[in-house]
Design a protein around this nucleic acid. Structure first.
Length: 711
DNA sequence: TTAGGGTTAG
């Protein structure tokens, strides 16, 4: 016999989770009308609430199977319990089960209908959501607001606005839903107009509008609006702080961010997960990575978002090794990375040009079923192409399901940088066939492809398309590309004319592109005029001095070379030394010209001597015009033979498996003699050699280079 | 703790 209420409670509570059947017996006993216990009726109600609490706990832990087991044992569940179950199924993306349960409900109130509508919209079934909304017997303000938010998530902003205009009654939440809908769909001006008209805006309205400005690239406006909110004396919520701190991060407003950090400490909000992550992000973006690390370490609980913020932060601060270490720590801790984590980690692989580690990450995305996610797919395509493995980039792109503009841009730019110009142009045709509208980046990629392959007429055509594409703005970088195309193709005068007729003021990059072309075509006259322009604009940059000096050196005008070098010295400008590196087993081996510091220097030079003999046997002659010192021919030859890229390749040859691809990076543009020599080396050793210089990739194979000698 | 609006990384 059950005697005390507390005993019942504790018995039910303790048995609910693990001993459902025993618990059910207790419930049945209490519900039985033959039980003559005086407290039975009240207990029955109380125990009912305990069932609710138990169900809530299971739903909260997303344990839908256990929740279902519990639910089926409850005699005549209330409409609330049904609705709780529908919400649970919705949160776990089990729309079919939610709908089945909704169909079984003996009675439905408006809340149940609203939950079912939300479930349909959240699970991606917009037609079901709309059908339920149209069929429901009685709509309230929440039904309308749920629909507006749902339609917005599908990008159907006009349909959402139409519903908003038809609402019989609106409250602040409805206005907020519509403001957010506009912001989320990039219509921040419409959002702002609505915000200004909102009858009784609350802190949520303000937060939505601040976040809306920030997420649409208007962080300054976001902060101006925040100052207004601050002046009004409104009590801020953790959400508002999270939002404003992010705007500070995006606007690099470290001062305001630090002040707000202090406020969050005083208000006790700094331990809020969202606020804390915003702070990690703030300090990382403002280049205070040590503060960022400290805040992350102080957190009680780490989640995937804060961990990703830290990994991204390391990347932003050029600490790519640390970023990848942190990623590994995250995996070791059992935390599951998501799309964003991979995006950041893969970006760090690009920063290190670490194809091996990029490939490991790729394998992990496959294991986690994220490989074909569009964000991960795009990051993988970029990683492969930036690490010089464009073939794998292309294979992945072909397998991707939902390609977006970024996917197309990634592969087009990747092809352009890797010397696959014709393919880049073909991909552009494919992109237009599936109605993906190009943007500024697409055109830059296409023009780069044309410039790298000296495709003058295609370049002109692309530039014409760009000028007449009303949805794209012609930017300075496009003019740089066009000057590069004209210059590389030898049309130096036309390039000068093109610059004169530009509707915007040319910058130093434009003139440098022309100067580079002068170097290629040994045009001293244009080079003099052009270098003067760069000297005026950027007196401290070494690039123009080096180019001019090299132009003189190639022509054997050693007096002019000395004059240029003297000018550099007088102005305190130093040339960046050329260096090349190769990464083997996650270790970077770097070389400069004539370097003998490597532990394997002896073997490297022995290999180079051997290569020198083989090259001569094949009739290869050193191109002395690239030896840019006024010394005799024998010395020039020795200097050329020991250029950094050749040292790195020789090291690669003796340290890797026969027949495997060698990947070398160089900080400057590859020298012309090395380019010719590496072509022959690829033939002699029967290997593919990939060399990334400061402007592009060269794929050497069987005596040829992918750039078609247009570097 | 039956239903709607604002928040963190990318």
């Amino acid at each position: 016999m059950i005697s005390e209420a507390s005993e019942v409670d504790s018995l039910v509570m303790s048995t609910c989770r693990l001993h459902l059947d025993a618990s059910f017996q207790v419930f049945k006993l209490l519900s039985d009308p033959t039980t003559s216990h005086p407290l039975a009726a009240r207990r029955c109600q109380e125990v009912g609430s305990h069932w609710k609490a138990a169900l809530f706990r299971l739903l909260e832990s997303r344990d839908m199977d256990e929740a279902h087991r519990l639910f089926t044992r409850i005699p005549s569940p209330s409409v609330q319990l049904y609705t709780m179950m529908i919400n649970g199924y919705s949160r776990t993306n089990r729309i079919d089960e939610a709908f089945r349960l909704f169909g079984c409900m003996p009675v439905r109130d408006t809340a149940a209908w609203n939950s079912m509508i939300k479930a349909a919209l959240d699970c991606g079934d917009s037609s079901l959501g709309r059908k339920l909304f149209d069929e429901m017997p009685e709509r309230n303000v929440i039904s309308w607001t749920t629909m507006i938010s749902g339609l917005s998530r599908f990008g159907w902003i006009d349909a959402a606005a139409e519903l908003f205009s038809r609402m019989p009654r609106r409250d602040t939440a409805s206005w907020n839903a519509m403001i957010s809908a506009y912001c989320d769909n990039g219509r921040v001006k419409d959002a702002r107009l609505l915000f200004e008209k909102t009858p009784q805006p609350n802190v949520i309205s303000w937060t939505a509008m601040i976040g809306g400005h920030d997420q649409n690239g208007e962080s300054d406006k976001a902060l101006l609006l925040f100052h207004k909110l601050w002046s009004s004396g409104t009590k801020l919520t953790p959400s508002t702080y999270a939002c404003v701190l992010t705007a500070c991060a995006n606007a690099s407003e470290l001062g305001l961010g630090t002040q707000l950090h202090s406020h969050t400490v005083r208000t006790g909000y700094s331990s809020d997960a969202f606020v804390s992550t915003s702070l990690v992000n703030l300090y990382a973006k403002c280049k205070q990575i040590e503060d960022s690390i400290q805040l992350f370490c102080e957190r009680k609980e780490r989640d995937v978002v804060s961990w990703t913020a830290l990994i991204t932060g390391y990347g932003l601060n050029d600490r790519h090794e640390d970023a990848l270490d942190e990623f590994n720590k995250m995996i070791a801790s059992g935390m599951r990375p998501n799309q964003s984590t991979f995006t950041s980690a893969l970006n760090s692989c690009c920063g290190l040009e670490a194809l091996d580690r990029g490939k490991k990450l790729h394998a992990t995305t496959v294991k986690l079923g994220l490989e074909l996610d569009v964000f991960v797919g795009n990051s993988l395509v970029v990683m492969y192409s930036k690490c010089g493995d464009i073939e794998d980039g292309l294979m992945l792109f072909d397998r991707m399901d939902g390609r977006n503009l970024v996917s197309w841009n990634s592969i087009i730019v990747g092809c352009a940088q890797n010397g696959y110009a014709t393919l880049a142009l073909k991909l552009f045709d494919g992109m237009r066939q599936v109605n993906v509208q190009p943007d500024e980046i697409t055109y830059t990629g296409l023009l780069t492809a044309c410039s790298h392959s000296r495709m003058l007429e295609r370049g002109r055509l692309i530039f014409h398309l760009l000028k007449h594409d009303s949805s794209v703005q012609v930017k300075l970088e496009h003019y740089v590309c066009m000057v590069d195309i004209l210059g590389r193709c030898g049309n130096l005068e036309e390039a000068e004319e093109f610059i004169r007729n530009m509707p915007v003021e040319p910058n130093s990059k434009i003139w440098l592109a022309l100067l580079g072309a002068c170097r290629m075509h040994a045009n001293i006259e244009v080079a003099r005029r052009t270098s003067k322009k760069v000297f005026d604009m950027e007196p401290d940059s070494s690039a123009a001095y080096v180019l001019l000096s090299n132009i003189y050196a190639s022509a054997g005008r050693w007096n002019d070379v000395s004059q240029t070098r003297l000018m550099m010295r007088c102005r305190g400008i130093t040339k960046v030394p050329g260096s090349s590196w190769i990464t083997l087993k996650e270790t970077r081996h770097e070389f400069v010209c004539g370097d003998r510091s490597h532990p394997m220097a002896m073997e490297i030079y022995k290999k180079l001597d051997w290569l020198g003999v083989k090259l001569k046997e094949l009739g290869y002659v050193y191109d002395r015009t690239f030896a840019l010192h006024d010394v005799d021919d024998e010395q020039k030859e020795a200097a050329l033979a020991h250029h950094s890229e050749k040292l790195a390749i020789a090291f690669g040859l003796i340290s890797t498996v026969e027949g495997s691809t060698i990947r070398v990076m160089k900080n400057l543009r590859v020298c012309g003699d090395c380019h010719s020599a590496i072509k022959v080396i690829s033939q002699v050793v029967g290997r593919r050699i990939v060399l990334r210089d400061s402007t592009r990739f060269h794929h050497f194979r069987d005596g040829l280079c992918s750039c078609g000698d247009c570097w």
